[in-house]
Amino acid sequence: MQETPQELAARAILPALRGLVARELVREHKFTHQKAADLLGLSRPAVTLYARGLRGRAIELRRRPDVLIMVRDMADGLASGEIDVRGLMTKLDSAATYVLRKGYACDLHAQVDPELKGSGCNLCMTAPFPCSYFHGWKVEPGSPTR
């Protein structure tokens, strides 16, 4: 089956990232599943599945320190009120692009589309890095952010 990188991101990477943020909110910030669901714009049962690792398992990102630093940032931002669900969407989108760009999803992509294996595909790695990540910030007056 052929699948574009963006389809892969929607099917596997974004759920995995959401799951990690949900787990961070529940485990590190000690939020209830309902409170985490409210912050993430999800249902409580969905957060329960994410928090237990029963959803968002198609790709393993928990051993990627660079991805985890983004996950912590997103969870901290939601917990502190620095970002809302709209800001989270911007950051999740950028983080998913980052995962593609770093080649972390290539093995999974090749499982879905075996023709990619050994093809020299570098489509994702030639895309620009997601500098829109920080557009999820709430900009305060006087802040030098863009």
Partner: peptide, 9 residues
């Protein structure tokens, strides 16, 4: 590291 990791670190 590449964006956004340097800023988050």
């Amino acid at each position: 590291d590449v964006c956004p990791v340097p800023v988050l670190r």
